[in-house]
Amino acid sequence: MDDLILKKVVKFITPCIQLFGIYIIMYGHISPGGGFAGGTIIASSLVLQHITFGKNDMHFIFRKEMALKLISFSLILYSLIKGYSFFGGQFHLPHPPVGVPGNLLSGGFILPLNILIGLTVSSTFYIIFTLFSNE
């Protein structure tokens, strides 16, 4: 779209939306939120940028092929970490790690799992959007 006001506003507001999504992902284990909610917020910012600046400008930032590679990498790493947490004994069932409010690294494996879920969900929603928008 050729609208100067829209482009300026989107340039200003997109990093704020992405920062909010990253906050929700990072603090998902000690405050409301989590990987899925933060991932959808980041995906909505990507979709906003794709609508405003078009397909060609978006290719400098985030390609569809790169999103597919990111999904595969995240899912493999997720299964490895979660499988280690299942079979590693003292990490999972008897005492699941409950985070302490105010301490970001107190959740055990929940923080990296949330980050991987956020990467997967944001890339998946962006790919679904590119399937819907006729190029």
Binding site: P32, A37, T40, S44
Partner: peptide, 19 residues
């Protein structure tokens, strides 16, 4: 249920409307 509120606002009002 603030967790569900965040998810509903992001998915229901954001992604689903765009799709």
């Amino acid at each position: 249920a603030p967790d569900l509120a965040i998810t509903e606002a992001a998915v229901g009002a954001g992604i689903t409307t765009i799709l």
